[in-house]
C-alpha cells in the first residue's frame, strides 16, 4: 500500500513536473493566461498521460527495445487524437479556441514521453496508472496555480469572478512576458523554501 501511495504522491509536490523537473514548459507558459485555461490544459494532459501510461505498461513486454520510442509516440499520438476529437465535440468552444494548437502539441510534451520511458515501460499497469494520475495532478496543479496568479495580476479576476477593481489590472501578466516572470518567481520562492528546509535538517 505504501508503495502505491509513494508512486501517486511523488508527482504532486516533491517531483512536480513543472516546478521541480522543468518539463512541459511550452503548454505551461502558453495556456495559463487564466485559471480555467490552465486547469483545462492540465486535465487534457492528465487524460493522455494516464491512458498512455496504462497502454504502454500493458504492452511493455511486447515492444522490442530498439523501436520502443516510435512505439511510445504512436500510442501517445493515438490518445492525443482521441482527446482532440472529444474536446472538439464536448468542450466549450471558448476553451478549444484558446488552447488551440497546444492540444495536438500534447504529443510532444516531454512529461508524457518521459514517464513512458522512465516509468510505464518498467512497471505494472496499476503502478503506472497511479504514476500518471500523480504526475497529471501535479501538472494540473502547477498550471492552475500559474493561471490563477496571472489572471489575478493581469485581469483582477479568478476563474472569471472579479474581486479586484479593473484599475488594478496589469495586462502584461496575461501577455507573453508575464508567463516567464510569474513562473520564474514561483520557482525562486520554491527554491528559497527548499533551501531553508535543507539547512534546517542539517543544522
Amino acid at each position: 500500500m505504501n508503495r502505491y501511495w509513494k508512486e501517486f504522491s511523488k508527482g504532486l509536490i516533491h517531483n512536480n513536473p513543472v516546478f521541480v523537473i522543468l518539463l512541459g514548459m511550452c503548454p505551461t507558459l502558453a495556456t495559463t493566461t487564466n485559471a480555467l485555461n490552465g486547469f483545462s490544459m492540465g486535465l487534457a494532459t492528465m487524460a493522455v498521460l494516464v491512458g498512455s501510461n496504462l497502454t504502454i505498461s500493458l504492452i511493455r513486454k511486447l515492444i522490442p527495445d530498439t523501436i520502443r520510442i516510435p512505439a511510445f509516440i504512436v500510442v501517445i499520438a493515438t490518445f492525443v487524437t482521441t482527446i482532440q476529437r472529444v474536446m472538439e465535440a464536448w468542450a466549450p468552444p471558448a476553451i478549444n479556441e484558446s488552447l488551440g494548437i497546444f492540444i495536438p502539441l500534447i504529443v510532444v510534451n516531454c512529461i508524457i514521453l518521459g514517464r513512458a520511458e522512465a516509468f510505464a515501460s518498467k512497471n505494472t499497469p496499476l503502478l503506472s496508472v497511479l504514476d500518471g494520475l500523480g504526475m497529471g495532478l501535479g501538472f494540473t496543479f502547477a498550471l492552475t496555480l500559474l493561471g490563477s496568479l496571472r489572471e489575478i495580476l493581469g485581469n483582477g479576476t479568478l476563474f472569471g469572478f472579479r474581486f479586484l477593481p479593473t484599475d488594478f489590472s496589469m495586462l502584461t501578466f496575461i501577455l507573453a512576458p508575464g508567463g516567464f516572470l510569474v513562473l520564474g518567481l514561483i520557482i525562486a520562492v520554491l527554491q528559497k523554501l527548499n533551501s531553508k528546509k535543507d539547512t534546517g535538517v542539517s543544522a
Binding site: 522543468l22 502584461t172 501577455l175 507573453a176 512576458p177 508575464g178 508567463g179 516567464f180 516572470l181 513562473l183 520564474g184 518567481l185 520557482i187 525562486a188 520562492v189 527554491q191 528559497k192 533551501s195
Partner: peptide, 22 residues
C-alpha cells in the same frame, strides 16, 4: 541571490527579452 540562480533567473531573463520583443 541563491534562490534566483538557475531556472528562475533564466525565466526572468526570457521574460525581459519577451518584453523587449513586444
Amino acid at each position: 541571490p541563491k534562490p534566483m540562480r538557475g531556472a528562475p533567473l533564466a525565466l526572468i531573463t526570457a521574460g525581459l527579452l519577451s518584453l523587449a520583443f513586444m
